[in-house]
Structure formats: structure tokens, C-alpha cells
Design a protein around this nucleic acid. Structure first.
Lengths: 221, 221
DNA sequence: CCACAGGCGAGAGCACTGCTCTTGAAATGT
DNA sequence: ACATTTCAAGAGCAGTGCTCTCGCCTGTGG
């Protein structure tokens, strides 16, 4: 039955995070204040502490939501297609589109880590979903190119553990190449979003497309 | 002669940024407060506003210093060698080593952009030095692999403008590949430093080395 | 060499933040 | 009907960025 008090409590938390998310989208993480969230919700600042332990915890809630949101976007983008390269293109494009549409949320996820945040258990769910979707394309690779072999046994073990967790039967070299490509993808998006290519690249669309193809080449898609 | 008042002024600014840098290295950008800098320097908080207009400007000074520091490290790393691949390895390793040694400075440069910061003119000097050093290895490429051709004329113009500014005679495709590899490099370092590979990679050294080689392959080094 | 404008440090103060504690009311479960 | 728990509210503490005013004092221009 979930006790109606507990339900009211969850509703309050939902209201709080919703308002917090609005402020995050508008002013960025630095401009998010518990007091102004309370003000906007018509309560006094101390009341909101009944529902959220601290500002950092509120940010953590937003991080979890944002991960889920991004994972949703990527999963929706790689719909029915089973061509690895098309998969990869869609996935990359959806990450970039989401980042451009939600710059502050993106910065929260992939910018400087928030001080009091330590990747709680709630985060690894959506995060796993996201990276699973991004790694998915290599399932359909045509294997045109052999990735370099892995020389470190512990790294190979890492890769095999991850592959097993995702239910993938590609080898360690391919999976590590995919993880590397994902890091490259987020590096590319971060460079664009955080302004590191200002005065360098003006046609961001074309540069992004070019790099996505290059990464697809490396992955043998 | 530079007026002894002006010299004293510069010395004060140097003291302030030095103390600010100490606090940045210890507590991170979020924990840097103008008041505590003033306290540590034995002055009252309003006095420091004579030398630094705002907290954001102080952070900007730190950003410029950090860029210079990182550029120094990379330039020192790619010493006399003229083998492109060795160059690239040293450059990548020096970026990663600097990032690990100065995580908060790295986060300041490549994490979420600080709100009131707009890449002032002072930044582009050290930043250009840094990226010039990182692009340098492709000068000595053996050209084993042809990068994909560029289809966007404006992107090609971007690349040629940058190449001209750096005095490079490599073609647009190679320069764009190099810029992409740089973005990949920082994506990789950020992933490691910001904890996105926690519970995934344990042998960060090996993973980094693997990716550096893959990028070198793509660059034809 | 000297007057003085300008740079200077100090202090008070404003508006804001995160967070804690107490108090009294209201809802709850027995 | 009652005891317990949950709650909103308010006051309050310590800290922040930043502004303004007030004298002092010193380097600089005449």
C-alpha cells in the first residue's frame, strides 16, 4: 500500500527535484540553491531539508535523472536498425543533440565532478544502460579491421568482465576499442560544448560528423 | 621604469594568485574564496578587491596560469625527438601526468566552464602554445594512412586557417584528424580523472597506452 | 623639496548561501 | 481518545561575494 505518508513524501521529493531541474537548466549547477527551490515551492528553506539531506544530495538526484534522460535519448535513437555503422551514427548524434539541448545537465554529468558526490548506487543503473547502448553497435561490426592486441592481462580481465556483464561475445580488444571510442565521443562533445574549439572550428556539424566516421572506421563498423 | 607603485601592485597580484592557487590545489575551485585568500594574506577582504575585480576574474587568472603550466609540461616532454610516434606518446603521457598531478587545475581547464568566464585574450596565448605542441607530431608523420577526405568547404577552410596560423603544411584532413585526436585525448583523460571508468577499468595505465597507440595509428604516425 | 591627488587598508554593511535547532501544530496509527 | 511521529515555520549561526565610505599615507608631478 506504500503508506500515504510515504506517497506524499515521494511527491514532495518529485516536486523539489522538478523545480531544482528547472533552475539547473536555467542557471547551471552553480546557481542552484536549496533556498530558492524552497522559495519557488512556497515553503521555508528548513522544510525542504526534511526531504533532501543537503544540496549535494539534491545534485546527486539530478545527476541520476540526467543519466536516465540521456540513456533514454540514446536508446530511442538506435531504434530498429541493425547496421553497426548506422547504429553508431545515431547514437553519437543523439548524445550530441542531448548535450546541446541540455548543456547544464551535460556539464553536471561530464564536467568537473561535484565535490561531495561519490557515484552512489543509484547512478550505476542508468549509466550502465547508457554505455550498453553506446557499445551495442560493435555487436554488428563487419570486422574489417583488427584492433590492436591487449598486452596487459589485468586490462584484458577488465574487458572480459565488462563484456560478460553486458552479455557481449566480442573479444577484449574490440570492447576496449569501443570504450575508447566512447571516451573520444564525449571528449569531442565536451570540446564543442565547453568552447575549446572556439576560434578553431566554425562548422561544428561537419567536424563532428567527420570524427564520428573516423571512430566508426577504427571500430571496423 | 614602470612606477614603483605599479610594481608593488603586480607583486600583490602575484601573492594573491599564488595563495589562490594553493587553495585551488587543496580544495578545488568550488572551495576557493576571496575572503579566505585575503585572510591568509593578512588583509581584509575588501582590500583584495583593489587588485582583483571579482572571484571570477581571480579564477580566470588561475586558468591562464594553468594553461601556461600545462603547455610548459607538454613542450618539455616532446624534447629533441623527431619521431612522430614518440612525440605523440610523450605529449599524451605528459598531459595525463600533469592532469593527475594537478586534478583541480585540470578540472578548471577541461571541466565545466566557470559561469562568468569568456576566454579572454590572455588565455589564447598559452592555449595556442599547448595545442601547437600537441599537433606538432603530425609534422613527422610517415603518412601510412590517408585520413578521410573533408566534405565541408567551411570546415576545410577552418583547417587551412588553423594550419596557416601554426605554420603547418600538412593538409586539412591531417590537421583535422590531429584536432580530433586531441579531443579524444582529453576525453580519455577526463574519463579517468572524473571517475567515469570506475568499476570498468582498473589498469588505467594500460588502457591509456592502448588508446594512445590507437590514436597514433589513426594519425599515421 | 613640498603639496596633494590618488592609491590604499580598514571597517561596516547588504543580500545571499547552506545548514541546525527549537517550537508548536497537525496528521497518524493504535 | 491518546500518544507518537511527522511536519512547517522561524530564528539563528557561520560563511560568502561585493559595495561603499572613511581617513591615512605615500609616490609622484610640479
Amino acid at each position: 500500500m506504500a503508506g500515504q505518508r510515504e506517497r506524499a513524501r515521494q511527491a514532495y521529493i518529485a516536486d523539489i527535484t522538478a523545480e531544482a531541474r528547472r533552475q539547473l537548466a536555467r542557471d547551471g549547477a552553480a546557481g542552484l540553491s536549496l533556498r530558492s527551490v524552497a522559495r519557488e515551492l512556497g515553503m521555508v528553506s528548513s522544510a525542504v531539508y526534511r526531504y533532501v539531506a543537503s544540496r549535494d544530495e539534491l545534485l546527486t538526484l539530478l545527476i541520476v535523472e540526467a543519466y536516465g534522460d540521456l540513456a533514454d535519448a540514446v536508446e530511442a535513437a538506435i531504434g530498429g536498425d541493425d547496421d553497426g555503422r548506422v547504429h553508431w551514427r545515431s547514437a553519437c548524434a543523439s548524445v550530441r543533440a542531448w548535450a546541446v539541448a541540455h548543456p547544464h545537465e551535460y556539464a553536471l554529468l561530464y564536467g568537473s565532478p561535484v565535490p561531495g558526490y561519490s557515484a552512489p548506487q543509484d547512478t550505476i543503473g542508468p549509466a550502465t544502460r547508457l554505455y550498453a547502448a553506446l557499445v551495442e553497435p560493435v555487436r554488428h561490426r563487419r570486422g574489417r579491421r583488427r584492433p590492436s592486441t591487449v598486452t596487459s592481462p589485468v586490462l584484458e580481465a577488465d574487458a572480459e568482465r565488462v563484456a560478460a556483464a553486458l552479455g557481449f561475445d566480442v573479444g577484449a580488444p574490440v570492447l576496449l576499442a569501443a570504450l575508447g571510442a566512447i571516451a573520444s565521443l564525449f571528449g569531442l562533445v565536451s570540446f564543442e560544448l565547453f568552447g575549446h574549439t572556439n576560434n578553431v572550428i566554425t562548422d561544428h556539424d561537419a567536424f563532428f560528423a567527420l570524427r564520428v566516421e573516423a571512430l566508426a572506421d577504427e571500430l571496423g563498423l
